[in-house]
Write a protein that binds this DNA or RNA. Structure first.
Lengths: 203, 203
DNA sequence: GTCTATATAGGGATAGAC
DNA sequence: GTCTATCCCTATATAGAC
């Protein structure tokens, strides 16, 4: 039925918003039901349990957001352009959903053992193809020798961490929401610059 | 009494460990009492409530860890040396307590409004003195013009974020605990290098 | 100071009517 | 599919004995 599909989506959306905003543990199923405009029994009818609802949402969230990033990493673009594009798209994506970072952090924190189990999450990380490209370019002498693991962690840190400390940055600099957004926008140019500078050979 | 002081500390330590490991929300007061070897009524005798216990622990944790960092930032050391030392000490500190980062992240995430209220937390951020030093050196032409806010966020990101994604990094690279520690150690030299390169004038 | 016992609230999940 | 009513459990916090 069309109606049912609709209800499922309402529950899904309500839960997503609440999970992102308040964290999974501080969100009750009753709250989700309220926000979705249904009652809590129905939530269990569609998703077997809160835990299962969470898994569904988390996978979907990560998947939806990581697909384009992986495509960029695996494209056959020239390295520098690829990095520029990757950083910009990643930052843009997080701009649209700033809570995503701290949400994922919270998950990473709490479920040490479950990380391997959650296959989705690994798609947030570098791909073999990109690693190979870094090594190849270094071998050809086009860039400095660099440890791909470190480089990728550097890149990810510079992209994502500012969102995780958004409130701290806003508080310390007296930023309004718009000013923070502006600050983030500036990073779309700044971060690639910093990374490329560290790769350029001459020095 | 000496005994009482001791009990307070046992509760404090047990709670600290559990909060860091599992997060505040997933830690119950019964669990804390168990681990401390007392019963839960006593916990409320010493600390009025779980929330209050948390506040006490959080302030103490941040304070204990940030004092040395602030001292470094405010010292009259030469800029490049200061950055090298700051990064190294900060990473060393987080190495000893890798869970600190995701713990603080979780707090930042959940209590938007309470951040200003938690004065302690702002001590994790840059100081006026350091900002001034950056601007002065740029004016003198010793370093490139750089936005201090961006620079500090860059630095913090490169220092702290790897700890927040520790499990992801370990999982993706098949790192053992020791190998991750080794990876982190390498960053003590790498990160300052990256930052200083971005500041050096010539280019 | 430290305990046992209990009050009170809220959580997730289900039975069963419609 | 959707609801109401309810079960059962665990959470935090407190009362009151020792």
């Amino acid at each position: 039925m069309a109606r049912s599909r609709n209800t499922e989506k309402k529950i899904f959306d309500a839960a997503t918003e609440l999970f992102l905003e308040k964290g999974v543990d501080r969100t009750s199923v009753r709250e989700i039901a309220n926000k979705a405009g249904i009652n809590l029994a129905l939530m269990n009818y569609y998703f077997r349990s809160k835990e299962n609802l969470f898994d569904t949402i988390f996978s979907s969230l990560v998947k939806r957001n990581s697909e384009e990033l992986i495509r960029i990493l695996n494209s056959d673009q020239e390295l520098f352009e690829k990095i520029e594009q990757y950083v910009e798209v990643y930052i843009e994506m997080l701009s649209e959903n700033p809570l995503l970072v701290s949400f994922v952090m919270a998950i990473l924190h709490r479920s040490r053992e479950r990380i391997t189990e959650m296959k989705a999450i690994s798609s947030l990380y570098a791909t073999d193809q990109f690693t190979k490209q870094l090594l190849d370019e270094a071998k050809k002498g086009n860039i400095r020798r660099t440890d791909p693991t470190h480089f990728f962690v550097d890149m990810l840190s510079l992209i994502a961490f500012p969102f995780a400390i958004k409130m701290l940055v806003m508080d310390k600099n007296n930023f309004s929401e718009e000013e923070f957004q502006q600050f983030i926008n500036e990073r779309k140019k700044r971060v690639p610059k910093l990374l490329l500078d560290s790769l350029r050979p001459c020095k």
